[in-house]
Design a protein around this nucleic acid. Structure first.
Length: 226
DNA sequence: TTCTCGGATGAAGTGTCTGG
DNA sequence: CCAGACACTTCATCCGAGAA
């Protein structure tokens, strides 16, 4: 059995079992345990999150092994179309994350579906209007919202006022052109909105804030109606 | 020359036994 | 029940051999 075939088989084995021992794999593939150790290193180098524990064996790190998802052609098309809409968005981090997600979708399609999708990709273009200045913070902000993590930002307001703020990020919304972050600002001791394209610098702290009973709906009712 | 493989050896985790 | 000693298991590293 060629090495490539063995690596594939080991990966399948890892996905189907909780823990596999090098000796079992060595016996199954008729090679030495030393060879299996090298194979594991190769898989690890290739980006497969393999964990190893002496006395136990090898295992896939939690989260890597996901249940198989098959997309229909129409679902894949919908995702591709959404990616084109997202390209008109002004946050580079979101565009980047979405594009890698679409690449993963493409990877699981069969050849015919891939060809159709590639044709569709050429026939859908982003609207030609000029994009506003790009930000690169949205992915970090989204994660901070869900982690309840305090952010430190350097922000330039519409009146060109430059401030450093410690904020508790609560939500984001998208206008036609920009993403806006709603957060509790510890400088002003109140809720504030921050345009992501005006955030000059953003630092994730290690500090967490207590969860707030906050919904965007409540926020808009309270702050937008007057 | 490069790639693949295996032997020897060491480091570290796990399980079992024994004595207090 | 707990701690220490020991054997066993498993992975990591070094190095050399053989094949392409």
């Amino acid at each position: 059995m060629k090495r490539l075939h063995r690596l594939t088989a080991i990966l399948v084995k890892l996905q189907s079992k909780k823990v596999v021992q090098a000796s079992d794999l060595a016996e199954k593939f008729d090679v030495s345990t030393r060879t299996i150790y090298r194979d594991m290193l190769a898989l690890s180098d290739a980006g497969v999150p393999i964990g190893a524990e002496a006395g136990t064996g090898y295992f896939l790190v939690d989260g890597y092994s996901l249940p198989p998802i098959m997309f229909t052609e129409k679902e894949a098309n919908a995702l591709l179309t959404a990616s084109k809409i997202i390209e008109t968005n002004n946050d580079e981090s979101l565009i980047s994350d979405y594009n890698t997600a679409v690449e993963k979708v493409k990877a699981i399609l069969n050849t015919t579906q891939k060809e159709k999708l590639e044709l569709l990709e050429k026939r859908i273009v982003s609207p030609p209007y000029k994009k506003s200045p790009a930000s690169t913070h949205l992915s970090v902000i989204q994660k901070a919202i869900t982690d309840l993590r305090i952010l430190e930002i350097e922000y330039t307001s519409a009146s060109k006022e430059y401030t450093k703020r410690t904020i508790e990020p609560l939500g984001v919304y998208f206008t036609n052109t920009i993403w806006v972050l709603i957060a509790y600002c510890r400088l002003r001791n109140d809720y504030r909105e921050f345009r992501t394209d005006r955030i000059v610098n953003l630092i994730e702290t290690s500090e967490l804030f207590p969860p707030k009973f906050f919904t965007l709906e409540d926020y808009f009712k309270k702050y937008m109606e007057h």
